[in-house]
Design a protein around this nucleic acid. Structure first.
Lengths: 147, 147
DNA sequence: ACAGTTCGTTCCATTATGGAACTCAGTCTT
DNA sequence: AAGACTGAGTTCCATAATGGAACGAACTGT
């Protein structure tokens, strides 16, 4: 199978990855969540090749994750902002952060953690089922295939 | 920046992606969650080249996400199972599934959804803060950098 | 002896990525 | 008005990763 065929899969994991499963894409999305919107900024922060960044931004725009908006005329300049679809990726990013902080040790004593914007208290993300309030685990959930 | 330098980053998103941000890796993990444990099975299901699969399995084992266990002697054969670290990826996968089902349309009417193993009722995953019980959004959370 | 199984490895063509320089439209400096 | 500067890309080429197919090793079963 080719990577590009993934979007045709029935499995939502495969379809999701066809959009954000690319090497750099989630890092671009992260920077957008952090408020970086311009090509130069993102390119410098990521150390990614301009070539690749241009390609990823194009694809993210085509997927409806980012939108390209002019922030000045003369000379015309665009910035990239998360759409609602892009913002909906927040739980994916938070889950990833939580996993990495618990399971992929940082280089030194440095760390980045999630805290409440209001109180500054640390956040402990847990996935629950909104319908029942119960914690979601791989033991309590099944995948259901509809045709 | 090179892709392989990502694990040295302080940002947990980058460190997490250094393990699972690879093109096929999350699909291998998905298959393990679905109970497929053998090289042949996974290779056929994914349509990935054997070469790449062998490489990914090696890296996932090195990262402590999978462990290699003999399931028979003579001839010696191994299978791959999720470790606790690997199982801890479940919230990441569920968040991704939820996002893809809402934002990346499946090819036809086909769909795969999450249901309760006990009741069969559909699941609506939501991320909350275990400390406060409040829903986690990008407006209520900040990243805090400690040195 | 010979085909079948399972988990890989090897070889090579194609594709993607990294690095650096270049373009283009307009602005700012002197 | 000439020349430097800015931001967002594009172009070119060497290097790395991937896709496809065949091959190898260590057994089993007939």
């Amino acid at each position: 199978m080719r990577w590009n065929d993934l979007s045709e899969e029935a499995c939502p994991v495969a379809r999701g990855l066809s959009v954000i499963g690319d090497r750099w894409t989630m890092l671009v999305v992260r920077d957008c969540f952090l408020g970086y919107r311009r090509f130069e900024q993102i390119q410098e922060r990521l150390g990614i090749t301009r070539h690749v960044l241009a390609d990823r931004l194009r694809k993210l725009e085509a997927a409806g994750v980012l939108r390209r908006e002019p922030y000045q005329e003369r000379p015309l300049r665009h910035e990239y902002r998360l759409t609602d679809r892009g913002k909906a990726l927040y739980p994916v990013m938070v889950s990833l952060i939580d996993w990495a902080n618990a399971h992929v040790p940082p280089p030194e004593a440095s760390s980045v953690t999630l805290v409440s914007r209001e109180t500054g208290a640390p956040i402990a993300p847990v996935l629950i089922d909104a319908n029942t309030g119960e914690t979601i685990t791989h033991r309590t959930v099944n995948a259901k295939v509809a045709e």
